[in-house]
Design a protein around this nucleic acid. Sequence first.
DNA 1: TATGGGACTTCCAGTGACTGGAGGTTCAAG
DNA 2: CTTGAACCTCCAGTCACTGGAAGTCCCATA
Lengths: 147, 147
Amino acid sequence: METYSIGDLSRATGVKATTIRFYEAEGLLPTASRTAGGHRVYDLAHLDRLGFIRHARQLGFGMEDIRELLRLADAAPEAPCEGADAIARRHLAAVRERLARLRSLEAELERMTYCHNGRVAECRVIEVLTDAAHGHCADPTHGGPDR
Amino acid sequence: METYSIGDLSRATGVKATTIRFYEAEGLLPTASRTAGGHRVYDLAHLDRLGFIRHARQLGFGMEDIRELLRLADAAPEAPCEGADAIARRHLAAVRERLARLRSLEAELERMTYCHNGRVAECRVIEVLTDAAHGHCADPTHGGPDR
DNA sequence: TATGGGACTTCCAGTGACTGGAGGTTCAAG
DNA sequence: CTTGAACCTCCAGTCACTGGAAGTCCCATA
């Protein structure tokens, strides 16, 4: 059976070796077997699972969600998959919320960057920020937790 | 002159007392004077500055950017404000990048949540994630650093 | 078989922007 | 004067890694 070092796995998936070790410590990847000297040894199953994790992360799922998705993926194929669906829907809703906030941020930032080569006295950027102290901000949409 | 406790400031701005202390420790807010017993005492200038910081945070500026914006806001009114403009433009560009990534995430999440009440064997969510291990993901847009 | 150097190991601290808790002190109303 | 809410400091935890230090292993070449 073909085996891989942590470096092979890293090059194959684009996930750094430190991050792979981190995933193992967090229980997302099963513990690898070791050489006599203590180096980690992986196989195809690890490669697939790491790909799964990487893609889920790219889609913005948190580690708790990924843990759950992995549990579901490992479950019997006839098991119902409402769980996975629910996680994805919940995440989609969160993404849409962030989109809405970001769009409103974009609009306000566009408005404030009309200041060109002015002086601080007439700077829109400083002005908008300063006036906020007195509650002149029209759009409260971007008030939630960001990023 | 009217003075405020940290609680007054917190209620007035919606910023938690712990966060206000944190801003002081980070140098965003000037150190408050104290009562004989050691409680912080604020004035209007603090209130304004905290409003400035809060709004900048809501707009997604990082603390380093805010430090710079505060420096600029405190500068002589005749000083040029290219700096503030540059920060805002840079941030706008970052926001637009995040928007693009989020839109592509939204699209892929939409595609994968078509799975309703199926079984794991035919679950789109699990499937999409699993296949990613073999590189079948069409859209690489959401590969960058997210959130 | 020896050696050199790149890949690997563990452990720990740092990131950003807070948040929460423990354990103790101060303030202001009654 | 008493009570209890608000305040104080210090420290650890959050999330998903990342980087460094100090040491060990593996393997290709000589």
